[in-house]
């Protein structure tokens, strides 16, 4: 599966595991239910740990695990099911700084929204060319909302208009 990060294709280094069965050696992504069930064991094993959260799961439920997690996958079962946008934003606002990956029905026309709420890697499939994805990442050069993840040349309008006012506590930037 091609993976998009920082507008280039990167190799997949994570191993995806199912709900149960033997854990392979290396960096693994486990379903959220397994994380809850086998936390003790998972937190002690060598290698990096990631989780794939459902979009009906609550971000708060991950709070105690966040310091140990280096990848969180959030699914888009359909491109117009927007729940993962809010979960992504909540996770970033909870202080999560690891990799946040969008999976499922990820399309170029939603890429910039996903970047803005804090996703940084994308399971993109084979359908569109890299050039299409690169172009899609910067369709808008500015946004009104504050506290979004964005490129250095992507302006936050309200902040630009009031540069002398108190800045957003933490001004995030994409990748």
């Amino acid at each position: 599966m091609p993976l998009l990060k920082n507008n280039t294709l990167v190799p997949e280094t994570w191993l995806h595991t199912s709900a149960d069965g033997e854990l392979p050696a290396g960096d693994v992504v486990v379903p959220f239910a397994r994380l809850l069930k086998e936390w003790e064991q998972l937190s002690k094993r060598p290698g990096k740990l990631g989780v794939s959260l459902g979009n009906v799961d609550r971000a708060e439920a991950l709070a105690m695990f966040l310091p140990k997690l280096q990848l969180i996958e959030l699914p888009f079962p359909a491109f117009n099911d927007g729940r993962a946008y809010s979960i992504a934003r909540q996770l970033r606002q909870m202080g999560y700084r690891g990799e946040l990956r969008a999976t499922g029905n990820v399309l170029p026309d939603q890429l910039q929204f996903m970047l803005q709420v804090g996703f940084d890697t994308f399971d993109i499939g084979e359908r569109f060319t890299l050039a299409t994805w690169q172009q899609a990442s910067k369709l808008m050069s500015l946004a009104y909302q504050r506290g979004l993840y964005r490129r250095n040349d992507e302006a936050e309008i309200w902040t630009e208009r009031h540069t002398d006012a108190e800045p957003w506590l933490e001004q995030p930037h994409a990748g």
Binding site: N80, D81, G82, Y85, R89, Q110, F113, Y144, W158
Partner: peptide
């Protein structure tokens, strides 16, 4: 302005 292309609330 706030609601225009709000990335979190477009779907």
């Amino acid at each position: 302005q706030w609601s225009s292309l709000h990335p979190e609330f477009s779907f």
